Simulated assay, not measured.
Amino acid sequence: MNKHPMTKEGADALQMELNRLKKEERPRITQDIADAREHGDLKENAEYHAAREQQGMVEARIKQIESVLSHSQIIDVTKLPQTGKVVFGTTVTLLNLDTDEEVTYKIVGDEEADIKHNKVSVGSPIARALIAKEEGDEVLVLAPGGNIDYEIIKVQYI
């Protein structure tokens, strides 16, 4: 079975969510269902049906998180040899050579990717272009919106 890479930070966040779902959400929903049952006829009981639907969504999310964690290889980038090369988990600061704008990305697993928080999937075009490069290297990223020339300003193992 292939394991998918995940940062320690991403695995910790999923574990926290899993604990919250199991220890807080699951018991609360069970109580909501019990309370709704006391209201009588279940066919026309909106609270009961809403709680059952919510229970299904929470249980599905629990199964999804457990599956992701069981199929992940957790990588703690702070414990990797700091060679200066871009590898999975590193945070890379780039200079766009056309616009002179700087941007910083962390290379993460597919489950953790979140462009709003500058976390790019290891399989994305930008991450693929950066892997194995180092500070000072120029890279051409074949982006959907057009090719972008970057210079790697800084590689951090944080």
Rank of each mutant, 00 (worst) to 15 (best):
Asp149Gly: 08
Thr30Gly: 05
Ala129Lys: 08
Glu59His: 05
Asp12Pro: 04
Val92His: 02
Leu69His: 06
Thr30Tyr: 12
Val77His: 01
Pro81Gln: 13
Glu135Gly: 10
Gly123Cys: 07
Glu59Tyr: 07
Glu135Asp: 05
Lys119Glu: 00
Asp100Asn: 15
Ile62Gln: 08
Glu111Arg: 01
Lys22Asp: 07
Asp100Val: 01
Ala50Ile: 09
Met1Val: 07
Glu101Cys: 01
Lys43Cys: 03
Gly40Pro: 02
Glu135Gln: 14
Gly89Leu: 03
Glu151Cys: 07
Ile75Pro: 03
Glu17Lys: 11
Gln15Gly: 04
Ala127Ile: 00
Asn147Val: 11
Leu42Trp: 10
Arg52Tyr: 06
Lys119Pro: 00
Ser72Ile: 11
Val155Arg: 07
Asp12Tyr: 06
Gly123Asn: 15
Ala36Gln: 10
Glu138Lys: 14
Gly109Cys: 10
His4Ile: 11
Glu112Leu: 05
Arg61Glu: 14
Met57Asp: 12
Leu142Cys: 06
Ile158Thr: 13
Gln54Leu: 10
Ile115Tyr: 10
Asn19Gly: 09
Gly109Ala: 09
Val103Met: 00
Leu21Thr: 03
Asn147Gly: 08
Tyr48Cys: 03
Ala113Gly: 07
Thr78Ala: 05
Ala51Asn: 01
Val86Phe: 02
Thr83Phe: 06
Leu130Thr: 02
Glu53Tyr: 09
Ile158Trp: 01
Pro27Thr: 07
Ile148Phe: 06
Leu14Asp: 01
Thr104Lys: 03
Val139Gln: 05
Val68Lys: 07
Asn2Phe: 10
Gln31Glu: 12
Ile148Arg: 04
Ala143Leu: 11
Arg20Lys: 11
Glu66Leu: 05
Tyr150Val: 05
Glu134Arg: 14
Val108Phe: 04
Leu94Gly: 01
His71Val: 06
Val86Arg: 08
Gln64Lys: 13
Ser70Trp: 12
Asn118Ile: 00
Met6Val: 02
Val92Tyr: 00
Pro5Asn: 08
Gln55Thr: 09
Glu138Met: 08
Glu38His: 11
Glu47Ala: 15
Lys133Thr: 14
Asn2Pro: 08
Asn19Ile: 07
Ala132His: 14
Asp12Ser: 09
Gln55Met: 15
His39Asn: 07
Glu53Cys: 04
Ser124Thr: 02
Gln55Ala: 09
Asn2Arg: 12
Gly123Asp: 14
Gln54Arg: 15
Ala143Thr: 09
His49Gly: 05
Leu21Cys: 02
Glu38Tyr: 06
Gly40Ser: 04
Ser124His: 11
Lys154Tyr: 03
Ile29Gln: 04
Leu14Gln: 02
Ile62Ser: 09
Val86Cys: 08
Thr99Tyr: 02
Met1His: 06
Asp137His: 15
Ala132Glu: 15
Lys43Leu: 12
Ala11Arg: 02
Glu112Gln: 13
Ile153Leu: 13
Thr83Val: 09
Gly123Arg: 13
Ser124Leu: 04
Lys23Ala: 10
Asp100Trp: 01
Ile29Thr: 01
Met57Ser: 13
Gly89Tyr: 00
Thr83Met: 10
Ser67Pro: 05
Gly146Tyr: 11
Gly56Thr: 12
Leu18Val: 04
Asn19His: 12
Val58Ser: 12
Glu38Ile: 07
Leu42Gln: 10
Ser124Tyr: 05
Glu24Gln: 13
Val108Thr: 11
Gly145Arg: 13
